[in-house]
Design a protein around this nucleic acid. Structure first.
Lengths: 140, 140
DNA sequence: TTCTCTGCAAATCGTTTGCAGTAAA
DNA sequence: TTTACTGCAAACGATTTGCAGAGAA
């Protein structure tokens, strides 16, 4: 997601409708660096739209994912998390606090750059690097 | 998993018991390059032990994973797959045929080598590189 | 008006667990 | 004999779906 306006425009161009619920979800996602789960986002949108359903959040996330506006992270075996950041970076998952964090390599990652390219006949649509372990705060 | 004998020895040393069911599971896993799911393994062991339960297969896989004898792959959002290969390699997942395949980089992958090391205070226990897309056979 | 979205309620399904009987050591 | 394993059956919980009414275009 670059910015909410661009996402809205993309929705309109695809014939999708812009609803207050969706705008709120876009806004919440835009500045999020916490890699929220669908449930996380649902709980936060509830404060703005007290009657929104989990289904609406869920379906909007699916749509955003299908449009490549957000990335779906499978690093936590318990649930899916979402990442609105589009730049190349890898993710760490702490098995103690169960937090997902970004890790920016000092030099670009050759694998992350494979997205949209072809290697050995395989057409890469998305590339993920996951590091699982224990974060600094948890390894006292 | 290097070989079944070593795995058996490792089980014995940990006070775990060796059962016919487990030996069959070890043998099936050892030569597998198909990245089977728990269900896949269950179906295959059924031919050898017609009364084995899914629970037994499931718990044995958990144990093998905890002992770092096999890797758990979260590349397919539908279910977990297992990989007995311990060498560094990355995985591709075709969203059409839903097959997982190995991809050996011609030069070593810096991220896969992070396992058991520490970066920015994060103690890496396992490192995975996942490429999702469409395989050669499916992109006709 | 048309077509998509929303919200509810229920289904789905891979995964996980408790427990009693069985078997390895 | 002791301790772990097996198999059953049920629970769990994130995810997914069908549908009727609401709302965007």
């Amino acid at each position: 997601m670059k910015d909410v306006e661009t996402t809205i425009e993309k929705f309109r161009q695809t014939g999708l409708k812009i609803t207050p619920q969706r705008i709120s979800i876009f806004n919440l996602l835009k500045d999020d660096r916490e890699h929220p789960s669908a449930e996380d986002i649902y709980k936060r949108v509830l404060k703005i739209h007290p009657s929104i359903s989990f289904t609406t959040v869920y379906k909007t996330l699916q749509t955003l994912r299908d449009m490549d506006e957000i990335r779906e992270l499978s690093i936590n075996p318990e649930r899916v998390h979402y990442d609105p950041a589009t730049d190349d970076h890898i993710h760490t998952f702490c098995t103690v606090c169960r937090n997902i964090e970004d890790f920016m390599p000092d030099h670009s990652c050759e694998y992350l750059e494979l997205a949209s390219s072809k290697i050995n006949g395989f057409h890469v649509q998305s590339a993920e690097v996951y590091l699982t372990g224990i974060c600094e705060d948890c390894s006292v």
